[in-house]
């Protein structure tokens, strides 16, 4: 029983990060039907921004309390990553908006490779840890061990997701995003600035990935290739949840977190993990091709 609770906690920690990244995939797909394969690498860049800003702030003689440094680091990573995503959209994807969809997908893969290799060439391949913003405190309750960092990850992710859900459902920007997603030809006729809304979507998706990136960097190492596997898993999360659907991406993220943790618990080895995840995806695509929360869309001719 203790072990089960422990594994659920482990899965929630991992699932939170997947969910935060899956949101970026799903939002961009929802608005311009583009699978932004560079998103995993945008996430990777955000962890590096967090690494450099965090290290600089911690090493200064400012003597800022850890929590202030943490908040500043997250904000800096969000801002820099949002800017990067908007620039990528403006220069790599916008010129291809009328081109066949496959061109944009290939461009996205290219942007991802560029980010990986640029980071590799400029920063180097060595893995790094983010500085410790606060001391790690491990609590044990009834045989279940959990750390303050783990609680922060799970809680911050939940708050961010609630906030995003509110933005999309309750604000004008959210309404405009849904309008563009619904019909990008009619929306501009109603006075919705489509280009700006698309930029805002990229910015929001990337800043959420940056929050995920900073949280991720607090417990795992940062390296130039980290975006590849995590990006794939987040992408599967988005598809499982129903690509284009924000609540679906959150659910999908947690499902994939549970798949990763519970595969080695139930099956003999963690090696089956990718097999389980992709089988889940295949089965889901057969019976619910639009994902758990996605709605079937009639192809417009």
């Amino acid at each position: 029983m203790q072990t089960l609770v422990q594994q659920v906690l482990n899965a929630l920690q991992l699932g939170s990060v997947y969910a935060l990244i899956a949101l970026g995939y799903t939002m961009v797909y929802g608005i311009i039907t583009l699978i932004n394969f560079a998103h995993g690498d945008i996430f990777m860049v955000s962890t590096y921004v967090a690494f450099f800003v965090g290290t600089a702030l911690m090493s200064q003689l400012l003597r800022l309390p850890g929590i202030v440094v943490f908040v500043l680091t997250v904000l800096a990573a969000m801002f820099a990553t949002a800017l990067l995503a908007v620039l990528i959209e403006r220069f790599a994807y916008k010129p291809l908006r009328q081109a066949p969809r496959v061109s944009a997908v290939i461009t996205a893969l290219g942007v991802g490779l560029f980010l990986e290799n640029f980071t590799l060439a400029t920063i180097g391949p060595d893995p790094r840890f983010l500085p410790k913003f606060f001391p790690v405190v491990t609590f044990t309750m009834g045989g279940v061990a959990f750390s303050n960092i783990q609680i922060i990850i799970i809680a911050v992710s939940a708050v961010v997701m609630l906030l995003l859900d509110t933005i999309v459902r309750r604000t004008m920007v959210g309404m405009a995003m849904r309008a563009v997603s619904w019909d990008k030809f009619t929306a501009p006729l109603m006075g919705v600035p489509v280009d700006r809304i698309i930029s805002i979507t990229f910015a929001i998706g990337a800043s959420i990935a940056a929050i995920g990136g900073t949280l991720f960097g607090m417990v795992y190492t940062v390296d130039p290739y980290m975006g590849i596997r995590i990006g794939w898993w987040a992408f599967i999360s988005a598809v499982v949840g129903g690509i284009g659907n924000i609540r679906g991406a959150m659910i999908g993220g947690y499902i994939l977190g549970f798949v990763e943790i519970f595969t080695p618990v139930i099956l003999p080895a963690s090696t089956y993990r990718d097999f389980v995840a992709f089988s889940l995806l295949l089965v889901l695509l057969i019976f619910r091709p639009y994902g758990i929360l996605g709605r079937p869309v009639a192809q417009k001719v």
């Binding site: 072990t3 422990q6 594994q7 482990n10 920690q13 991992l14 795992y220 190492t221 290739y225 980290m226 596997r229 990763e260 943790i261 519970f262 595969t263 080695p264 618990v265 080895a269 963690s270 090696t271 993990r273 990718d274």
Partner: peptide, 20 residues
């Protein structure tokens, strides 16, 4: 006798089994 795959960063599932 637990395993993982190159590039993994989360070992909590296997380590929980090891501690158990």
């Amino acid at each position: 006798f637990e395993s993982y795959t190159t590039g993994d960063k989360d070992f909590s599932a296997q380590l929980t089994k090891i501690i158990q």
